[in-house]
Computed example of a mutant assay.
Amino acid sequence: MSHRLHGRPRSPFRWRRRGKRGSRQSGGVAKEDPFPWRQWMRIGIGGLKWRPADFWSSTMTEFFEAINGHNDAQGGETEKSTAAPTENEMAALLARFG
């Protein structure tokens, strides 16, 4: 049975709100902060005006270059912090977040 919502098939999955990520504590010690997906989504979808599909299908290089291009177009300075991560930084991210 295919459900339709506004002409598009509706996902059979139901979204559940599970509370704030990163707010759980184990043994009285706060867990490590999760990867900053929400902040990155705000930049990509809100600031760059990307569709969610464009955000999720972009590579990290495309994402950071889009930020640099946006900043250049707005007359801002390109900061080193917006550059794509180096190999060592990427390895650290993969080790931390899998």
Score class of each variant (00 low, 15 high):
Gly44Glu: 01
Ala53Gln: 10
Ala83Asn: 08
Ala73Phe: 06
Ala53Val: 11
Thr59Trp: 03
Thr61Leu: 13
Met41Asn: 10
Gly47Tyr: 04
Arg51Leu: 13
Ser57Trp: 03
Trp56Asn: 07
Gly76Pro: 01
Asp54Thr: 12
Glu62Leu: 02
Ala83Val: 02
Pro52Ala: 03
Arg51Gly: 09
Arg38Trp: 12
Leu48Thr: 00
Phe55Tyr: 09
Trp50Pro: 03
Phe64Met: 15
Ala66Gln: 03
Leu48Asp: 00
Asn71His: 14
Leu48Glu: 00
Lys49Arg: 14
Arg38Lys: 14
Arg51Glu: 13
Phe55His: 04
Ser58Lys: 10
Trp50Arg: 02
Glu62Phe: 04
Ser57Val: 05
Arg42Trp: 08
Gly44Asn: 05
Ile43Asn: 01
Met60Ile: 14
Asn71Gly: 11
Thr61Met: 09
Gly76Glu: 09
Ser81Met: 06
Trp50Glu: 05
Trp56His: 09
Gln39Met: 13
Leu48Cys: 00
Ala66Cys: 03
Gly47Trp: 04
Thr78Asn: 13
Thr59Phe: 04
Glu77Ser: 03
Ala83Lys: 08
Gln39Cys: 11
Ser57Glu: 08
Asp72Met: 14
Trp50Asn: 04
Asn68Gln: 15
Pro52Tyr: 00
Gly69Lys: 10
Gly76Ala: 12
Asp54Trp: 07
Thr61Tyr: 12
Ile45Tyr: 00
Pro36Gln: 06
Ile67Cys: 01
Arg51Asp: 10
Gln39Gly: 11
Asn71Gln: 14
Trp37Ser: 13
Glu65Val: 03
Asn71Met: 13
Lys80Trp: 07
Asp72Asn: 14
Gln39Thr: 15
Glu62Ser: 06
Trp50Met: 07
Glu79Val: 05
Phe55Asp: 02
Lys49Gln: 11
Ala73Met: 09
Glu77Leu: 02
Phe55Cys: 03
Ala53Asn: 13
Glu65Leu: 06
Thr82Asp: 09
Asp54Cys: 06
Lys49Val: 07
Ala66Asp: 04
Lys80Asp: 11
Gly75Pro: 02
Asn68Pro: 10
Glu79Leu: 11
Phe55Lys: 04
His70Val: 05
Ser81His: 06
Phe64Cys: 15
Leu48Ser: 00
Ile67Ala: 00
Phe63Ala: 00
Phe55Leu: 06
Ser58Thr: 12
Met41Thr: 07
Gly47Ser: 08
Glu62Lys: 03
Leu48Ile: 01
Gly44Ile: 02
Met60His: 15
Gly46His: 03
Thr61Gln: 13
Arg51Phe: 09
Phe55Pro: 02
Ala83Gln: 10
Ile67Leu: 02
Trp40Cys: 11
Gly75Tyr: 01
Phe63Tyr: 05
Pro52Arg: 01
His70Tyr: 15
Ala53Pro: 05
Arg38Thr: 12
Pro52Phe: 01
His70Pro: 08
Arg42Thr: 09
Arg38Ser: 14
Ala66Glu: 04
Thr61Asn: 12
Trp50Lys: 03
Lys49Phe: 07
Lys49Met: 10
Ile67Ser: 00
Thr59Ile: 04
Thr82His: 11
Thr61Ala: 14
Gly44Ser: 07
Gly46Ala: 02
Ala83Glu: 09
Leu48His: 00
Ala83Cys: 11
Thr59Ser: 10
Arg42Tyr: 09
Gly46Lys: 01
Gly69Gln: 12
Thr78Met: 10
Ala66Met: 04
Trp37Asn: 12
Gly69Val: 03
Trp56Val: 11
Asn71Pro: 09
Ala73Lys: 10
Asp54Gln: 13
Ser81Gly: 07
Ser57Arg: 09
Trp50Gly: 02
